[in-house]
Design a binder for these strands. Structure first.
Length: 280
DNA sequence: TCCCAGGCAAGGC
DNA sequence: GCCTTGCATGGG
């Protein structure tokens, strides 16, 4: 796969390890859509539109090409990751099906808010809540609304988040956003190793083991984690025939098996397990 | 009506 | 430490 950056676009050729479906509908991002064949995604204060101009050839139109090169992680070689994971026979179907999946490098604050909302929730509802947050507290742009920064979202009340459909997570959001806006945690977390960052994240309201792992994976680029939700729980019992019931121990099992490829492995398995559920 | 969704906090032991 | 319970809300 090769890419070329121009002023207002990225040109992607021989894209054998990238598809819009794979990166956008694999449950790691909540502000995206498709309009007559063209996919769009908003991250932070940036928007991109992805068009397929030929098989495995895409044009990504955006005002910030450099942001999206990093966001889509085009400098990481997925052939290497796939060849390592391919040695595990049980992963075969998931790797074939999810060949276009990549792990996005997303803005930390947006990931923390989004995944606190994700707890015991379903993806369409999460999308609704995150988009309403942007529409009420983000900056209006020609292309829509940015996701608010921490200072701006610290103005939101429990009632606001309840109105956005966040349910019982509303007070957790207010508490955690207040803490993030009055400390240097958002600057400090990226400097920590996985264990220290995880321990720190677990002190945030609304952040337990699974949400912490999602933040580490999607917002901090830590790949030695394996978020275990209800779908991965099914994978563990149905496909790996595991006997543990405690999700912490299930996560430990996967990390000890897949090491620093755990995050990638988890995303392929999650995407494959939900293959009959369409988000767009 | 019941079950489910990218689980977590709080309380009891 | 581990185990149980309550929890908002919309969709199947």
């Amino acid at each position: 796969m090769e890419y070329k950056v121009e002023d207002d676009k990225i040109i992607l050729t021989n894209a054998d390890t990238f598809t819009p479906e794979g990166v956008l509908t694999s449950g790691q991002v909540f502000r995206f859509g498709r309009e007559n064949g063209t996919w769009w995604v908003i991250s932070g204060d940036n928007r991109a539109e992805i068009s397929e101009i030929a098989p495995q050839n895409y044009i990504i139109n955006t005002e910030n090409p450099n942001f999206f090169v990093k966001y889509f992680d085009f400098d990481t070689n997925y052939d290497m990751i796939l060849s390592r994971l391919k040695k595990f026979e049980v992963l075969g179907p998931a790797l074939d099906y999810g060949r276009g999946v990549r792990l996005l490098r997303q803005p930390l604050f947006e990931v923390i808010v989004s995944f606190i909302i994700s707890a015991n929730n379903n993806i369409p509802r999460i999308q609704g809540s995150v988009n309403k947050i942007a529409e009420k507290f983000g900056e209006k742009r020609p292309w829509g609304y940015s996701f608010p920064n921490v200072e701006r979202l610290a103005e939101a009340s429990v009632e606001d988040f309840t109105r956005f459909g966040c349910g019982y997570r509303a007070p957790y959001l207010v508490d955690t956003i207040s803490r993030l806006s009055t400390t240097t945690l958002l600057e400090d977390l990226p400097k920590m190793d996985t264990a220290e960052a995880r321990k720190t994240l677990l002190t945030l309201k609304g952040v337990g083991p699974k949400v912490a792992d999602c933040i580490l994976l999607f917002g901090l680029g830590k790949y030695d984690v394996f978020p275990v939700d209800t779908w991965i729980d099914k994978v563990y019992h149905e496909d790996f025939h595991g006997t543990e019931t405690c999700r912490n121990r299930i996560a430990d099992y996967f990390v000890s098996t897949f090491g620093t490829d755990s995050g990638y492995c988890q995303q392929y398995l999650f995407y494959y397990k939900r293959k009959n559920i369409t988000l767009i």
